Simulated scan of single mutants.
Amino acid sequence: MLRRLVRLGAVALSLLVLAVVVPGSAVKSTEVALVKLDRADGVDVDPNLIWILAVGSDARPGQDMTRTRGDALQLIGMDTRTGAATAIGIPRDSWVPIRGHGYDKINAALFFGGPQLLGEAVGDLVGIQPDYVMVSRFKFFQAMVDDIGGITVRNPVAFSDPNLKPKGFGTGPIRLGGYDAMVYARIRYNLIRGDFDRSANQQRVLRGIQTRVRERAASPGFIDRGVLTAMQHLSTNLSPAELFRLAQAVAHVVPSKITTCVVQGSIGNVGGASVVLPFTAQARSYGDQARKDATIERC
């Protein structure tokens, strides 16, 4: 999954770089936000490890995407020394404590307190607080997939949705355009394991994006066009130097050193709403394994 975010990152983050560095770009973004989080005093942070929480926002037109419920949650780590990277998928309905708000679904943290609070909630669950949170709207994601010419994913189990995709997705390698990639990453109700399978599907889509961008990176003008697109849609509080550091870290990731896992849990009911009761020991195990070198030996 990280691969996917890697090239998507290589484009996305590089774009971010130019969006800030180019004088007079006057970026007014409502599509993608990259936010550096405040860290608690005394926290020992390894400068060689970078953690980014990638979030898909289900914000409606006119809504602030950084203050609505997050839809897709993937915690991505990169080790700039070794090129290793890992992604930890977190079901959006995970029932967890949110600082100052009691227990709620983890995606509600974005609504209550923006990227900062969501990053803290994820940190409390996994044991690793992200350095950055990247939030994007699904429409932007859809347009990006179309712009790179679509992607291919390997789908292990056929599934469908009566509203979003009545004919469904078959098994094996399947080609996805922007709309289908967005739907593939969002469907959960007809999946055998609901939120858990959806999180894994999101990782497959990201991997497909990374593969496609890698294939096209050498095409004349491809990266330039991606940069120009990002410049129109990015909002960030990072300095140009930090953006360059992130872009370099993304480009340094070695595909063979990427690992991915999804936090599991049991299904519960709170106030009539279905929730995921995450296996917190497992989530912490992933964090413990990945904390020093962005590598998870086993899920």
Score class of each variant (00 low, 15 high):
161 D>M: 05
203 Q>W: 01
93 D>G: 11
27 V>I: 12
87 A>Y: 07
185 A>R: 06
180 D>W: 02
252 H>R: 12
262 V>N: 08
139 K>I: 11
41 D>G: 02
233 H>G: 06
216 R>D: 06
99 R>T: 07
28 K>T: 03
245 R>S: 15
165 K>R: 15
270 V>C: 05
67 R>C: 01
115 P>R: 09
18 L>C: 04
241 A>F: 11
110 L>V: 04
296 I>Q: 00
69 R>W: 05
182 M>F: 10
65 M>I: 14
225 R>W: 00
5 L>W: 04
200 A>T: 09
55 V>H: 07
147 D>C: 03
250 V>C: 14
84 A>E: 12
163 N>W: 13
204 R>V: 00
295 T>Q: 12
34 L>H: 07
288 D>Y: 07
219 S>Y: 14
19 A>F: 04
67 R>Q: 07
275 V>M: 09
204 R>Y: 08
66 T>I: 02
9 G>V: 09
139 K>H: 06
170 G>D: 12
26 A>T: 13
131 D>C: 03
149 G>S: 09
28 K>Y: 11
215 E>Y: 03
175 R>P: 03
51 W>G: 13
108 A>V: 10
78 M>Q: 06
289 Q>V: 09
296 I>F: 04
185 A>H: 00
151 I>D: 06
223 I>H: 01
19 A>Q: 06
19 A>R: 12
298 R>E: 11
172 G>V: 10
21 V>F: 05
144 M>E: 13
68 T>Y: 04
98 I>F: 10
40 A>R: 14
38 D>V: 05
66 T>G: 07
24 G>V: 08
20 V>C: 02
153 V>T: 06
227 V>L: 14
224 D>K: 15
113 G>W: 09
98 I>R: 10
280 T>W: 07
8 L>F: 13
117 L>I: 02
214 R>Q: 11
108 A>N: 08
137 R>L: 09
203 Q>D: 01
220 P>A: 10
258 I>F: 02
97 P>Y: 11
239 S>T: 14
289 Q>R: 00
138 F>C: 00
125 L>D: 08
32 V>W: 05
22 V>T: 14
135 V>R: 09
34 L>W: 06
52 I>C: 05
37 L>I: 10
63 Q>P: 10
57 S>R: 14
67 R>G: 04
141 F>T: 11
133 V>L: 05
36 K>E: 02
87 A>F: 01
102 G>P: 04
17 V>R: 12
284 R>V: 05
70 G>E: 03
280 T>L: 08
160 S>L: 13
177 G>V: 08
161 D>A: 11
163 N>Q: 15
198 R>D: 04
225 R>Q: 12
160 S>F: 15
199 S>H: 02
215 E>I: 08
272 G>P: 00
2 L>A: 15
135 V>D: 03
83 G>Y: 06
264 Q>D: 13
228 L>R: 14
8 L>N: 08
43 V>Q: 14
172 G>R: 03
68 T>D: 00
174 I>N: 05
125 L>P: 02
147 D>L: 12
123 G>K: 03
219 S>L: 15
41 D>Y: 10
246 L>E: 08
160 S>Y: 15
283 A>K: 01
220 P>G: 06
53 L>S: 10
11 V>S: 10
128 I>V: 11
137 R>C: 08
108 A>I: 07
289 Q>D: 11
